[in-house]
């Protein structure tokens, strides 16, 4: 019997729904056990993986500093140029400082950092866990009575929860410095005026909301990377596919969360 037209239309929809629901189920279990092993189990006498966490901090955080710095500097300069283009017309060139300061700390610092970290570390997490899954190393951990989430995910979670805000602070500072550099040279704004204007424009709130976002992005990137890593069932080619998928998914989810937080902060602060 040939499938009817209705089946052709509804069948894929149903399959997609089921597979999406299953993904959500797996992801929420992963989130659950990550947070359990990260924040509850240490109080029940389980050890903290300090050495592994430090190594992840170096890999994910320290090694990202150069690329975050360079990109933030360029974006700061671009932002200053673009805002000068408009503000010049109304003779309010000094407001370049406000625009650069506020948009970098509230928005661009966290989001740029998140995209760089998703590309560098999120993909590395998926590839590392995925290839361990393919080589039965994850099974070996379980057979030794070692929880793979505790062993593999928690150090990465700590690293990104710490390093995302830290890298964001660096991105904020260097982005603002980029704007400063351009404004004081090309736009001929007096350095002291620019500095004063920036300090007056920035509220503690702006910086803090940016850092809260960064923290959340860190969690999102870790969980998405780990989720795709653990989802590997087959061999090497699936590791590659999952790695790519994890970058796309974490950038997408970072933007979704950004929208959510921005709306939240807009209405409630």
């Amino acid at each position: 019997m040939k499938p009817s037209v209705v089946e052709h239309l509804v069948g894929p929809l149903g399959r997609k729904t089921i597979s999406t629901l299953r993904a959500v189920h797996h992801a929420s279990r992963l989130i659950n056990s990550s947070f359990y092993w990260a924040f509850l189990s240490p109080f029940r006498g389980r050890r903290l993986r300090v050495r592994a966490s430090v190594s992840e901090i170096v890999k994910a955080g320290y090694n990202s500093v150069p690329i975050v710095a360079v990109i933030s500097l360029f974006v700061g300069i671009i932002l200053a140029l673009q805002s000068a283009y408009q503000l010049k017309k109304v003779g309010a060139l000094i407001y370049v400082a406000n625009l650069v300061g506020v948009s970098i700390t509230r928005e661009l610092g966290p989001i740029l950092t998140a995209i760089i970290v998703a590309g560098r570390s999120g993909s590395a997490f998926a590839a590392e866990i995925g290839s361990m899954k393919a080589a039965e190393e994850v099974d070996a951990l379980v057979s030794m009575g070692i929880n793979p989430v505790h062993f593999l995910v928690v150090p990465k979670l700590f690293a990104l929860m710490l390093m995302m805000p830290a890298l964001t602070v660096i991105s904020d500072c260097i982005g603002i410095f980029g704007g400063f550099l351009l404004s004081t040279t090309v736009l001929e704004i007096h350095p002291y005026n620019y500095f004063q204007q920036t300090v007056n424009a920035l509220l503690v709130k702006d910086v803090v909301t940016g850092l809260v976002k960064a923290l959340a992005f860190g969690v999102v990137i870790t969980i998405v990377g780990a989720y795709h890593g653990f989802a590997v069932e087959g061999g090497a080619e699936e590791v590659g596919r999952r790695t790519t998928a994890s970058v796309v998914a974490s950038i997408f989810l970072v933007i979704v969360f950004d929208l959510f937080f921005t709306a939240l902060f807009y209405f409630f602060t």
């Binding site: 361990m132 080589a135 039965e136 190393e137 099974d139 070996a140 379980v142 057979s143 009575g145």
Partner: peptide, 17 residues
């Protein structure tokens, strides 16, 4: 608890690389 009393060699050895 039971696993602590077991040792396993996987097909590809599965050492942590």
């Amino acid at each position: 608890g039971v696993r602590k009393r077991m040792g396993v060699l996987f097909q590809g050895a599965a050492l942590l690389n």
